[in-house]
């Protein structure tokens, strides 16, 4: 009944609009078309300037309403993120100036130079000086932005600092797996053909590599230490995913067959950030930012940024994955080993 009512109203509105429009056409013929046209011209000219003024107010109002909900007011959770914010502000100012000037001119000109019997259009075909100015000025401004941008880009994509904590993160439909190198600081070799969750090896670690024996695997939640650079080694098991870290202002695709890396330095612990944002439930989330299938939007991970002490307390409770997988290895040791050796040259990550 409700739907029917709604449809009836919509149809009615359309009918009314249509009748008015048709009538206005007849009226304009009666009034004299030229006169009606000029009247319409005045109305649209007025609407142009009205749109400009209301639009500018709207831009301010929208900003007032939504700016607090963006990430900008609280600052980034990483030092790289703060650099990106700085660059974003420079870009906002430059593009903002251009935006306001050009939009104001556009609607002001439209209003100011609307048709009038008194004015003759000015025959003005080109002016080299003007054109050189407005080719040159954007070119110089953009050069500044390029230089800034590339400076940061090369910084962020350069090798991670030596003291980085290396952590592997692997995406699959629809979740994240996190692997830490153990005491040796080396991630054990992997070979996707060894993947077998039933035998305690969901990531396809090659147990024949001794470096893998102290590696720790945890699902979903990553623990990192504040103020220590983190280097993520990013993998995917099936389709392309993306490690999206909005509070750190970074992201990088997880590509099957092609490991990628990303590093950043968290500067605020989860607790500090919760205080800063005034949101007690705050967590650093990992969002999958590359369409990956039907439950793409549920592919959530968490990063807990904590002090070294808190991290140590957590770390001490973790057991290497190998201990769990070993039972399967002893029962079927021979066959696993052969497969492992055969695929020695497979995808290797260190």
């Amino acid at each position: 009944m409700n739907t029917f009512f709604l449809i009836a109203i919509v149809v009615l509105i359309f009918l009314v609009i249509f009748q008015i429009s048709k009538a206005s056409e007849y009226v304009s013929i009666l009034k004299g078309e030229e006169k009606a046209r000029k009247q319409n011209n005045k109305i649209n000219g007025f609407l142009m300037i009205a749109f400009l003024i209301l639009g500018l107010i709207g831009v301010w109002w929208c900003n007032d309403l939504l700016y607090p909900k963006t990430l900008l007011p609280h600052g980034a959770g990483s030092s790289e993120g703060n650099s990106i914010d700085t660059m974003m502000w420079i870009t906002i100012v430059i593009t903002g100036i251009v935006f306001f000037i050009t939009q104001i001119l556009l609607f002001w000109f439209s209003f100011r130079y609307q048709e009038s019997d008194k004015r003759k259009a000015y025959y003005f075909t080109h002016n080299n000086k003007l054109e050189i100015i407005w080719t040159g000025v954007p070119a110089i401004t953009l050069t500044i932005l390029v230089v800034f941008g590339l400076k940061y880009w090369f910084k962020f994509t350069a090798d991670a600092p030596k003291n980085s904590q290396v952590i592997e993160i692997t995406g699959h439909q629809f979740g994240w797996e996190i692997r830490y190198p153990g005491r040796d600081g080396i991630l054990g070799r992997k070979n996707y053909k060894l993947t077998d969750p039933a035998k305690g090896n969901p990531l396809g670690v090659d147990w024949s590599d001794a470096a893998s024996h102290d590696d720790v695997h945890v699902p979903t939640t990553m623990h990192v230490v504040v103020n220590r650079p983190v280097k993520l080694v990013i993998n995917s098991q099936d389709v392309i995913h993306d490690v999206g870290l909005p509070q750190f202002r970074l992201k990088m695709d997880a590509v099957p067959g092609t490991p990628t890396t990303l590093w950043f330095t968290p500067i605020l612990t989860t607790k500090e950030m919760a205080k800063k944002t005034g949101n007690p439930d705050f967590v650093y989330e990992i969002s999958c930012d590359q369409m990956c299938g039907r439950s793409h939007f549920t592919m959530r991970g968490v990063i807990v940024v904590e002090t070294q002490k808190e991290f140590n307390e957590w770390w001490i409770k973790q057991r290497p994955e190998y201990l769990k997988a070993k039972q399967f290895l002893t029962t079927t040791a021979d066959s696993t080993k052969t497969v492992a050796l055969e695929n020695h040259q497979g995808s290797i990550i260190k």
Binding site: N40, N41, F109, Y113, E115, A121, Y122, F124, L130
Partner: peptide, 18 residues
């Protein structure tokens, strides 16, 4: 940008029919 500036200048001192 050149295109936008040229459109704006085309409007400038015109006799605009909406």
């Amino acid at each position: 940008a050149i295109k936008v500036f040229n459109w704006l200048t085309t409007l400038w001192k015109g006799n605009i029919h909406f």
